[in-house]
C-alpha cells in the first residue's frame, strides 16, 4: 500500500514547485501571456496604443459586455447556452426608456426593466427545464421575439432620452477620480462572481450539474432548479447591462447588441468554458473578452479594414478551441 491517499505531508512537500506547475497549467496564465505579448508588440507598433485614453476606451468597450459574459459563463458551466443576450440587452434599454418617457422615475423604470428581463430568463428556463427543449432553440426563438419587441415598441427608431436626470446618467458616464463608474461596476460584478463561483456551495452545484447532470441528480442536486436559475441569472445580467448602456448613451437603441451573443460566447469559450458544461471560470472568460477587445483595438489602430476584424476574431476563437481540445486530450 505504498500509494495510499496522499497525506497532507506529501502535498506540502514542495509547494512552490506545484504552485508554479499549477499556474502554468492554468488557461488564465496562457491568456495573460498572450495579452501581454500583444501589449508589448502594439506599444512599439503604435505610439497611441499605450495611452490612458486608448486603454480606457478598450476597457469601456468590454466592461458592460463583460457583465453579460459573467452571466453567460455561469450558464455555460451549468450546461446551457443563451443566444438571446444581445436582444434582451436591447429590450432592457427599450423597456426602461419607454417607461421613462411615459413619466415613470428612471430608477423605478430601470428596476422594472431588469425584472422584465429576469422574467424572460425564467420564461426560457421554464421551456428548457420543465418542457425539456434545448437551450439553443429556446434562446434562438427568444432572441428573435425580443428583437421584434424592441422594434415594435420603438417603431425601429432609437428613443432619445434627453431628459434623463444627471445622477442617472452618472452610472453610465461619470467617473470616480479617473476611473469610470462603468469600470468600477464591472470589477465589482466580476470579482463577486469569480469569488462565489470558486468558493460557494451554491455555485459548486452549478459545476456538478454541468459536469454530469445525471450524476448530479444522483447526488441529490435539484439540477432543473440549478439550470433554471442560471438561465434566469444570465438574462437578469443582460437587463443590468442594458440599463448601463442606456445611461451611457442617453438613448434606447432597438438595434443594439446585434451579434453580441457570438462575442460573449467566444470570450467565455476562449477563457476556458466548455459548451458541454462543467468547466469555465469568470476570470478566464473576462481575459477572453479582454483579448478580443485588445485585438479589435489593435487592428483599428493598425488601420486594418473593419471587414477583416470579424475574420480574425473568428479565427482566434477557432484556434483557442482547437488548442484546448488537444491540451485536454494530452491530459486525459
Amino acid at each position: 500500500m505504498d500509494h495510499t491517499v496522499n497525506m497532507p505531508t506529501t502535498a506540502k512537500a514542495d509547494p512552490s514547485v506545484s504552485l508554479v506547475k499549477r499556474l502554468l497549467k492554468m488557461r488564465e496564465t496562457g491568456l495573460i501571456l498572450i495579452i501581454l505579448a500583444l501589449f508589448i508588440g502594439m506599444s512599439f507598433a503604435s505610439p497611441y496604443f499605450l495611452t490612458w485614453v486608448n486603454i480606457r476606451a478598450m476597457t469601456m468597450a468590454f466592461a458592460v459586455e463583460g457583465i453579460v459574459v459573467v452571466g453567460m459563463t455561469v450558464l455555460l458551466i451549468s450546461g446551457g447556452i443563451d443566444l438571446s443576450v444581445g436582444s434582451v440587452t436591447a429590450l432592457s434599454m427599450v423597456i426602461a426608456g419607454w417607461l421613462f418617457l411615459s413619466g415613470i422615475d428612471p430608477w423605478l423604470a430601470s428596476g422594472l426593466s431588469i425584472l422584465a428581463c429576469t422574467a424572460i430568463g425564467a420564461f426560457m428556463g421554464f421551456f428548457t427545464t420543465r418542457i425539456g427543449l434545448h437551450h439553443f432553440i429556446v434562446s434562438l426563438a427568444v432572441m428573435v421575439i425580443a428583437r421584434g419587441a424592441c422594434l415594435l415598441g420603438t417603431g425601429g427608431r432609437p428613443l432619445g432620452l434627453y431628459t434623463l436626470p444627471p445622477e442617472f446618467k452618472f452610472i453610465g458616464q461619470g467617473s470616480i477620480g479617473p476611473i469610470p463608474i462603468v469600470i468600477v461596476m464591472f470589477f465589482v460584478v466580476v470579482i463577486a462572481f469569480d469569488f462565489m463561483l470558486r468558493r460557494t456551495t451554491m455555485f459548486r452545484k452549478v459545476f456538478y450539474t454541468g459536469s454530469n447532470e445525471k450524476a448530479a441528480a444522483y447526488s441529490g442536486i435539484r439540477t432543473k432548479k440549478v439550470v433554471f436559475l442560471t438561465t434566469t441569472l444570465c438574462s437578469a445580467l443582460c437587463g443590468v447591462a442594458g440599463i448601463i448602456y442606456m445611461a451611457r448613451f442617453g438613448s434606447a437603441q432597438p438595434t443594439f447588441g446585434l451579434g453580441m451573443e457570438l462575442n460573449v460566447i467566444a470570450a467565455a469559450v476562449i477563457g476556458g468554458a466548455s459548451l458541454k458544461g462543467g468547466s469555465g471560470s469568470i476570470f478566464g472568460a473576462i481575459l477572453g473578452a479582454v483579448l478580443l477587445s485588445v485585438v479589435s483595438s489593435s487592428l483599428a489602430l493598425l488601420d486594418v479594414s473593419v471587414y477583416w476584424q470579424d475574420i480574425i476574431r473568428g479565427s482566434i476563437l477557432l484556434t483557442a478551441v482547437t488548442v484546448d481540445h488537444y491540451l485536454n486530450k494530452s491530459r486525459g
Partner: peptide, 15 residues
C-alpha cells in the same frame, strides 16, 4: 452517473 469523472476526488466526495 456515479462519479463526476473530470472533477477532483475532493469535489466528488463532498457532492
Amino acid at each position: 452517473d456515479g462519479v463526476f469523472l473530470d472533477m477532483s476526488i475532493t469535489a466528488n466526495v463532498s457532492a
